[in-house]
Design a protein around this nucleic acid. Sequence first.
DNA 1: GCGGCCCTCCCCCTGACGGGGGAGACCGGA
DNA 2: TCCGGTCTCCCCCGTCAGGGGGAGGGCCGC
Lengths: 225, 225
Amino acid sequence: MSIRVLIVDDQALVRGGLAMVLRVHGDIDVVAEAGTGLEAIEATRRHRPDVILMDIRMPEMDGLEATSRILAEADWDVRVLILTTFDPDEYVYEALRAGASAFVLKDIPADQLAGAVRTVADGGALLAPSITRRLIGRFAERQTLGSGASRRVERLTERERDVVVAVARGSSNSEIAKELFIGPATVKSHVSSVLTKLGLRDRAQVVVFAYESGLVEAGDHDIGS
Amino acid sequence: MSIRVLIVDDQALVRGGLAMVLRVHGDIDVVAEAGTGLEAIEATRRHRPDVILMDIRMPEMDGLEATSRILAEADWDVRVLILTTFDPDEYVYEALRAGASAFVLKDIPADQLAGAVRTVADGGALLAPSITRRLIGRFAERQTLGSGASRRVERLTERERDVVVAVARGSSNSEIAKELFIGPATVKSHVSSVLTKLGLRDRAQVVVFAYESGLVEAGDHDIGS
DNA sequence: GCGGCCCTCCCCCTGACGGGGGAGACCGGA
DNA sequence: TCCGGTCTCCCCCGTCAGGGGGAGGGCCGC
């Protein structure tokens, strides 16, 4: 069964070129084209494509907005491949947030485009090499930025780390005492030694330290009701 | 000028196959092979390759450890392309942390391998589609997880957000007063309304909220001396 | 003009937090 | 064996944080 593709770009010439490039592959079927975000939504509803090649800069709703809306309302498996000329940071991150499965630049060789479409239709994801590089950079940074701080983490005893983690969840001393099955006085003394060892002043700074050192990570838990 | 490549894999047969696949491309020069992590380090020192195809599972130091060490000591531009059979999560993240530029599976078509080597040599990065998918997933999660919390952020006034950010740096009320050029009493009242509006108890929980909602991000600032 | 919201600042009060110092018990290494 | 580190807990005490309540001025919209 062939892959049903929708091409979205405000330049008819580009759409035609892409369609031509893709049609030579027997397993890819270009079912429709659209020139604006609104048209893309409409065409998606009507033709129910598997993969959408989406440009970003377009009149009447850009590709990112269209992507969000399409993915929000689609009740079948549709994947969006962002295909753009430039690669400004914000676009990439917005696109990924919008739910795009791929972000490739228009300088991609024609033969690789078909491969990209297949990869995306297959449930895979791919990014332009330069973007992958930045994403990895951001990721690796998150993992290593605590290097200065994590050296100090090692000065803490195991129990002290337990207390730090509990503090970093927003627990009070008495709550921590219950969590760890020890007395409140013990928690106090642990907190005190943590403050001394890390050169911090109060529990709020302990929370900051915990996040910055990677001891806890955003998303590990909820806060508030 | 051709790309100098070092192939590291504990199975001679695999090394031979990879070398053969790559040698048919005129711009790629396989300068050495290694069968263990230690040999990889040694071969890297001697041959100074541009790109290293690195297997993970090997006797005498695995590929991740070898990657870290090589990148730590190299005084020239060398990039590591991890080439493995499986793709367990931990390996990927460890590999990226170790500084790898690419992570591809051995099921990659032969002709794309050369392209991957060129991409990496060019300063780009690439990941197997399934891995890219997970990485994007993690990234998008980071961006959206604050959705529940960020709705509550909107209930705060601008000044209150200023205070929250300051609190999330570990500042005391009097310090915040100086930072914002207002009186300590004003800070107190802002903090109080923040606590009320967000349903929190103390400033430590405010810090947690700030990180979890994305109002501040790990890496935005340092803590302690 | 009036009400509502925001920002600014004040009072008092309670309680949790954090500093200082000490102590007993356990464990592992010198 | 004794010493050092860790974990447990105690007391006293000062301070800062947070709750409650109030107040004046500025801005905006009705």
